[in-house]
Design a binder for these strands. Sequence first.
DNA 1: TGCGCATATAATTATATGCTTATATATTAA
DNA 2: TTAATATATAAGCATATAATTATATGCGCA
Lengths: 119, 119
Amino acid sequence: MIKEDKSLKVIDVKDTANILKLLGDKTRLSMVSMLAEQECCVCEFVEIFQMSQPSISQHLRKMRDLGIVKEQRKGQWVVYSLNTTSEYYLLVRELLKHVPSQREKFDWLEEKGLRITCY
Amino acid sequence: MIKEDKSLKVIDVKDTANILKLLGDKTRLSMVSMLAEQECCVCEFVEIFQMSQPSISQHLRKMRDLGIVKEQRKGQWVVYSLNTTSEYYLLVRELLKHVPSQREKFDWLEEKGLRITCY
DNA sequence: TGCGCATATAATTATATGCTTATATATTAA
DNA sequence: TTAATATATAAGCATATAATTATATGCGCA
């Protein structure tokens, strides 16, 4: 019997390159790293990255378009999370192992009283 | 005693994003995947990718600039290989596990009699 | 030395990307 | 229904990227 490696999934070069290009951006890479810890809403990202709301929205859209993240409306907020059923999920998880934890960003939100309490 | 995970090396988000952006290109990702198998010279890449020589040269330069690949002159040829001493080497290796083998490209070179014999 | 081959660099152009501003949509509460 | 808040989308602009052509450099050999 052949052992299956659940951390491994081979993806064609073109698709992999697209994923890497997508995550080859400081903001987006930080975002997925955060989402690997906890779900997070758009307005929280805006505070964290000190960036305009449309800019944040556009980054999230690109990742949603490739299926890496998913959204869920909760009242007036839209909460994003990692899409664990994506065919790229294992690759993303693997990548994130090489990046430092972004937990401090959530701590910072708590401190500033900016954490949204709809979860 | 804490076990050290030799497949893991944490790199800051900005640097990681730069590496991912670099490898987030179909041509460059294929190149490193090939180099993970065997070293390869510029003119061979030109044949494989059916791309102009300057274009190939520029792709290689970008990767050399970040230390992912290294070059070695052998007579009139310049042979490229993976830089196994790069601080990004483990990350690159990990990424390549998710990409199909590019061995066939070397086979194709052999068939066409285009393999350079300076190795 | 001078020629031919391999590679690198420079300049240019076309396209892609990321951000901004303006506007539209959706939800909640008055 | 209207106002306020949260988010998404569209259009425009500035910068980045990748390819091409032209040219320079480096090596081997007659």
